[in-house]
Design a protein around this nucleic acid. Structure first.
Lengths: 120, 120
DNA sequence: AAAGTATATGATTAAAATCGAATATAGTAA
DNA sequence: TTACTATATTCGATTTTAATCATATACTTT
C-alpha cells in the first residue's frame, strides 16, 4: 500500500518539521542541520526516508544536495497538500522553525557559508 | 504534536482498512473481526489506537462496542477528510474489504448473530 | 596528491510498535 | 449463581524505528 508508506514517512515529528521548512524553501542538508538543529547523519537519514516516499526531491550541485517538496505528490495526493498547506503552520514548533529559517536567511545563510543562528 | 499522533495512528495498513469500513458503516469489534479477518485482540488494540487519536468513537451497548469514524476530526483536520474521502476507495485491498462488508450485511451479519462470510 | 567539506551509509543501542495466546473484565443468558 | 459471550488488557517474543558515532563516498581546494 503506497499510501501507507507515505503516511509512515509523515508520521514522525522531525520529518514533519523538515517538510514544513522545505515547503517554504529549497534547502540543502547543512541548511537543515543548522535551522532545525539536527545531527548530520540523522538529517540525511530522514531526508532519505522522505525522498523514498516521493515527498521530496533532491538535486545534487557540487558537493551539496538541495531538497524541496515534490509538487507532483501534492497533486497526486490532495490530503498531503491539505496537510502541508493547512496544518503545519498551526504547530508551535513549526512556527519556531520558520522563524529560524527567516533568521538564517537574513544572515545570508547558505551552503557555501558557515552561518550560525544561535549565538552561543 | 497532536498531528503526528494522528498520522502515526493512520500509518498502518490494518488501521487504514478499519477506517475504510468504519467510514461506510458503524460496526462492532466482532463485525470487524469477521469482515477483515482480524484476530480479536489485535482488532481491539488497533481500535484503541484509533480511538486514542480521536479518529473513531466507541459506543457501548450491552456487551458490544460499536465504533464509527469521528466526524468531528474530519472537520478539524481536512487532510484526514481528504484521505478518507478521496484515497481509500482507490486501494485494491480496501475495495475488497468493502465488498466483504456488503456480503456480510447481505447475509444479515451483526453482533447478535454469528454470521460467516467465507464458506470454509 | 593531500587536505578539507558535504553527505550517505554502516554499526550499534535503545525505544517503540506489532502480533497471537492467555487472561481479566463486563454484560447477558440459562 | 453459573455458564457463556464480547472486548480489553497482559504477557512474551519479534520486528521496526529513531538516534548517534564512525566511516565511506563524492566533490572542491590547496
Amino acid at each position: 500500500m503506497v499510501i501507507v508508506e507515505v503516511l509512515k514517512a509523515l508520521a514522525d515529528e522531525t520529518r514533519i518539521r523538515i517538510l514544513n521548512v522545505l515547503y517554504k524553501e529549497t534547502l540543502c542538508v547543512c541548511d537543515l542541520e543548522e535551522i532545525l538543529k539536527l545531527n548530520q547523519s540523522n538529517a540525511s537519514r530522514h531526508l532519505t526516508k522522505l525522498k523514498n516516499a516521493k515527498l521530496i526531491t533532491g538535486t545534487k550541485q557540487a558537493q551539496w544536495v538541495y531538497y524541496r517538496v515534490n509538487e507532483k505528490i501534492l497533486e497526486e495526493y490532495s490530503f498531503v497538500n491539505e496537510l502541508l498547506k493547512k496544518e503545519l503552520d498551526k504547530i508551535p514548533q513549526c512556527q519556531k522553525d520558520v522563524a529560524r529559517l527567516k533568521k538564517y536567511k537574513e544572515r545570508g545563510g547558505s551552503c557555501e557559508k558557515n552561518v550560525r543562528i544561535d549565538d552561543n
